[in-house]
Design a protein around this nucleic acid. Structure first.
Lengths: 206, 206
DNA sequence: TTTGTGACTATATTACCATATGGTCACTCG
DNA sequence: CGAGTGACCATATGGTAATATAGTCACAAA
């Protein structure tokens, strides 16, 4: 499910469903991934799809808007991976473990296999782009769903208010969710999600 | 208790206990705090204490060595604040709460009241200066002491290995200990330490 | 020996300007 | 009317020459 933006400074312009819009996105992903966001000029994108630079601006309000689209894709893919991993098991405690583990894995994969796109995600986090905010919201909601389910199955305690619980656990995960913080969490990246899952699950015990 | 360095690339030189060494440290703290580490030249320090630049290098092996000294001071002061706060109460669970709360408060205080020194601490963290490593080690040891005590008083569970416990809780606190990560933790800085303390304490319940 | 320095080098930083780039708009073409 | 663009502007960026700075050393004075 793609996250469509319609917020404060409108990112998209012109026809929403248009072949050229998709071409731009494809070319942008390719260029950003290969040369990086900074080294790619809007003219480069235009040239590669055979139009003029001005035409790009019929579809996107700025270069950053294109970057946000690509970034939203990347983060969306991570989100999908996480949802898939979570969906593979039934017990809420195990879901939580999977969620934590897969978030770290998927983020590290982006970092090591597509550094240039990772850098976009990092600067998106620095500058608080919509893509980042939505991604973090979605992850938090996924977490809340798991907690809610665990409460109903009796796996998790029910005294603590659900949103406090969600917030606290989200804060524990944040250093591995946010690309900026991830960079400072590479020490013990192997054990960290396991140890932290254990800690969180102990605190969730009924 | 000051932390003295004698490590890989020796930081100090010449007479350890010397009046001029102290003068340098005092002048450096003043200058770094007012103009920042980058904008302060070694010649500035020399001039302000009435010696030549070359003489500075009789006491410190580099400008960074001076920076490390100042940074170690700042972090040492935070550490002292935390130890004091922890020492004011008796119950290990309350000690943990205090520790978390005071670390956040003291770090935020440095950030808002002495931004320039905070920036040194941040770059010390980026470049993994000794001062940072020692500080983080000390904090971790303080944490372990509290946990150890709590186990003996029966306030905390005893099944989980002590060092796993320490590591996990340390990882929870790290976003508020490490100056680099702190910058990205300002949202919810009020509730975060409380909620996280609650979570940790729930997980520590026997 | 201990205290102290000016003169020196290699590297880092700054200041500058030419160029490149993001972004707009009036306009053409079919 | 809608698809598409060249010419244009203000600002960002990159490269480079000039300057400033970290750090050393041989040496002097006490």
């Amino acid at each position: 499910m793609m996250s469509e933006e319609n917020n404060s400074p409108a990112l998209n312009r012109g026809p929403v469903d248009h072949d050229v819009r998709d071409q731009i996105v494809v070319a942008a992903r390719e260029h950003f991934s290969r040369y990086g966001y900074g080294k790619t000029t809007v003219s480069d994108l235009a040239k590669s799809i055979g139009f003029s630079k001005a035409y790009i601006y019929k579809f996107f309000s700025s270069k950053q808007a294109i970057g946000e689209g690509i970034c939203a894709n990347c983060l969306g893919e991570i989100e999908e991976d996480v949802r898939r991993a979570v969906g593979e098991v039934d017990q809420p405690p195990e879901k939580l473990r999977r969620m934590f583990k897969e978030i770290v894995q998927a983020s590290c994969r982006l970092f090591s296999e597509d550094r240039k796109l990772y850098e976009i995600a990092a600067s998106a986090a620095t500058e608080r782009w919509q893509a980042t905010i939505i991604y973090e919201q979605n992850i938090k909601m996924l977490l809340q769903d798991i907690l809610h389910e665990g409460r109903q199955t009796g796996d998790f305690e029910r005294k603590t208010p659900l949103d406090e619980m969600t917030m606290a656990i989200y804060l524990v995960m944040r250093p591995y969710i946010n690309p900026l913080m991830l960079q400072h969490s590479f020490d013990n990246i192997e054990e960290a999600p396991i140890q932290l899952s254990n800690l969180v699950l102990r605190s969730l015990a009924p």
